[in-house]
């Protein structure tokens, strides 16, 4: 079981160039072993905030702590041992001639001995079902596979916290569901997962907590259940909950106690209510 550190961002301010203040006092914690989703409009500061957790960006004001220690003094290269980042575009993070070498690159940068590197590569290939493509060039693979390779390449570094920047964008339902099942498995091993996404279905189904960003700040956070009920938040951040959640919410307002966020959970609640009524 992995013991993930606790990450905390306190009052972060950050600007790209002179004109655009991407973060304006953002606060967010990543608790040990949680599955946190960050949602919000394009340009609300999700990626910018997430890139502060491994020091890719450094705040103009505010600080980030890892288990209570300020990370300002630590390089991204060092932080990578604990905080992994899967970029939005897999092509930006695939460097090597073959998939195998791609998975080995991170562990090699970390200075692990060749035997350990080999072990991690094998386990990475196996965990993500990439054995068939081990010797292929990652550039020649399909988008879905390139995405998987980019996740596996971070997985082999065994970071306790894994940040996923829109991991399912451009994937069809089957591939997305498969990828998500890998994340669930990692989460159950103790990895903290931080997922930036626009897909509220994913939030409803997988996240244990969700943070809503708007104009460079975290404007609300909590269990998806609670957040999806807060109309003013949804409206301000232009978020539309999944239809099934919206249906349950309206029925809840009408007096039916439907609490779930997924079709299965709501069906379960409904049948329970009906059973009680027939009693």
């Amino acid at each position: 079981m992995i013991e993930a550190p606790r990450l905390a961002a306190v009052d972060l301010w950050f600007s790209y160039g002179e004109h655009y203040a991407a973060l304006q006092g953002a606060d967010l914690n990543v608790e040990q072993g949680e599955f946190l989703a960050i949602v919000g409009q394009n340009g609300s500061g999700k990626s910018t905030l997430a890139k502060h957790f491994n020091g890719l960006l450094r705040p103009a004001k505010g600080r980030v702590t890892l288990d209570g220690l300020d990370i300002a003094e630590q390089s991204t290269g060092r932080l990578a041992r604990q905080v992994g980042y899967v970029f939005q575009n897999p092509d930006h993070q695939l460097f090597c001639p073959t998939v195998k070498e791609e998975l080995a690159l991170g562990p090699q940068y970390l200075g692990l001995d060749p035997v350990e590197v080999q072990e991690r590569v094998e386990s990475g290939l196996q965990a993500f079902g990439l054995q068939r493509w081990a010797d292929r060039g990652s550039g020649t693979l399909s988008f879905g596979l390139r995405r998987k390779v980019s996740v596996a390449a971070v997985f082999t570094m065994r970071p306790a916290v894994i940040i996923l920047d829109e991991p399912t964008t451009g994937l069809e339902w089957g591939s997305a569901a498969e990828l998500m099942s890998h994340f669930v498995a990692l989460n159950s091993q103790g990895h903290s997962m931080v997922m930036i996404t626009h897909d509220m279905q994913l939030v409803a189904r997988y996240a244990s907590r969700v943070a809503v960003m708007s104009e460079g700040r975290v404007v609300a956070q909590g269990e998806p259940q609670q957040i999806f009920r807060r109309e003013e938040v949804l409206h301000a951040a232009r978020i539309q909950p999944p239809q099934i959640v919206e249906l349950a919410r309206q029925l809840y307002a009408a007096g039916l106690e439907l609490e779930g966020l997924t079709v299965e959970a709501i069906c379960h609640d409904y049948l329970r209510l009906q059973g009680a009524a027939l009693g």
């Binding site: 390089s75 990578a80 980042y85 993070q93 940068y109 570094m157």
Partner: peptide
């Protein structure tokens, strides 16, 4: 811009340029 993102990705993979 691409180059910047790519070096970011390299650093995120544990490359220490310091």
């Amino acid at each position: 811009e691409s180059y910047e993102t790519i070096t970011q990705a390299q650093r995120a993979r544990g490359l220490d340029l310091e």
